[in-house]
């Protein structure tokens, strides 16, 4: 019996649990990819080890197809895994996770095909692959090299499973809406109407003026939070980051309305990127102040000293 959608999530949760990951709950703001959730974007910074797994909903307004296309959705799920530092046998662990899902590699053609990743809004890039299962791209595999304009050391491996594609393959169905979420309820029952209505909203009914206002307000708020760091006040980088995510989503909605010219698009991306980089830096500084609590105790002092010198001295 092929796994249901929720069983796929369960299976991955328990697999990555057994590999020492924190199994987190989804982050509750709109984002285009799970990479933008703080569990990835912020936690990969600095020297602390971090292992995390999470099924995370994502939104890409321009990918909406009114529920007509069997493979494309404007709201979907990514299964996100972060392993920092990247283990030497990370590809083998990944293949092991496929076995847990019922994919015996001996009976398939599994390939790691070059695919590098870059996020201009996050000031982040990495190199890696898309993983092909019998010609179908089921995962993205990235060695993070930079995030928020900061070098990621040690390097984190990010594995992102496309849950819908993977499940469609396992359940042998041609449409995402036919997927069994559990034995009684389909993916279509849960999300088809949502795709129809959200696509109509994204492409036709959203109010670009309002979206632009939201963008501006969120940007202003993020700036205020990042600048408002007078004496004795902690920088509110986490709330600031949420405002950036709101900016980013408003931007994606504007993009779906087709009202952004290329220049405007570029300019907006740059504005978001600048903010992301300030948050990344601010977050790292706070981890230094906290003394890198996730590090092995005997390593903390040296790491704090060296990071303090690099990031806190020049002020």
């Amino acid at each position: 019996m092929a796994l249901t959608f929720q069983q796929v999530i369960h299976t991955l949760n328990s697999f990555w649990d057994s590999h020492g990951c924190v199994v987190m709950q989804a982050f509750d703001l709109e984002k285009g990819a799970s990479t933008m959730s703080p569990g990835t974007f912020l936690r990969v910074l600095g020297p602390e080890p971090w292992k995390m797994a999470c099924a995370d909903p994502c939104r890409r307004p321009t990918d909406g197809r009114y529920g007509d296309n069997p493979n494309r959705l404007q709201h979907y799920f990514q299964y996100q895994v972060i392993l920092k530092p990247s283990p030497d046998n990370v590809q083998e662990i990944y293949l092991e996770s496929l076995k847990q899902l019922g994919i015996n590699p001996l009976e398939h053609d599994i390939r790691f095909v070059e695919d590098n990743w870059e996020s201009p809004t996050l000031g982040a890039w990495g190199v890696g692959w898309e993983v092909w299962l019998d010609g179908l791209e089921i995962s993205q595999f990235t060695y993070f090299q930079q995030a928020g304009g900061l070098e990621v050391r040690p390097v984190a491996a990010e594995i992102t499973y496309g849950l819908e594609r993977l499940s469609m393959y396992l359940q042998n169905v041609d449409s995402v809406y036919q997927l069994k979420w559990n034995d009684n309820v389909t993916y279509g029952e849960l999300y088809h109407l949502n795709e129809v209505q959200q696509s109509a909203y994204n492409f036709e009914h959203s109010d670009p003026e309002m979206l632009q206002t939201l963008f501006n307000l969120a940007e202003k708020e993020a700036l205020r939070l990042l600048n408002d760091s007078g004496q004795g006040k902690a920088k509110l980088v986490l709330p600031a980051y949420e405002q950036i995510l709101k900016c980013s989503h408003a931007f994606n909605l504007l993009d779906a309305r087709g009202v952004l010219g290329r220049d405007e698009r570029m300019a907006n991306i740059l504005r978001i990127r600048k903010l992301s980089e300030r948050v990344a830096r601010g977050y790292l500084e706070q981890r230094i102040e906290l003394g890198f609590p996730l590090m092995a105790e005997e390593l903390r002092e040296e790491a704090v000293d060296s990071y303090r010198e690099r990031y806190l001295a020049v002020k």
């Binding site: 398939h108 299962l133 019998d134 010609g135 179908l136």
Partner: peptide
């Protein structure tokens, strides 16, 4: 493909055709 096992061929064929 990178896998020449006869048992794999039907899966590989079906998967690629679907994509």
């Amino acid at each position: 493909t990178n896998n020449d096992r006869a048992e794999a061929a039907p899966h590989i064929k079906q998967g690629n055709e679907r994509v």
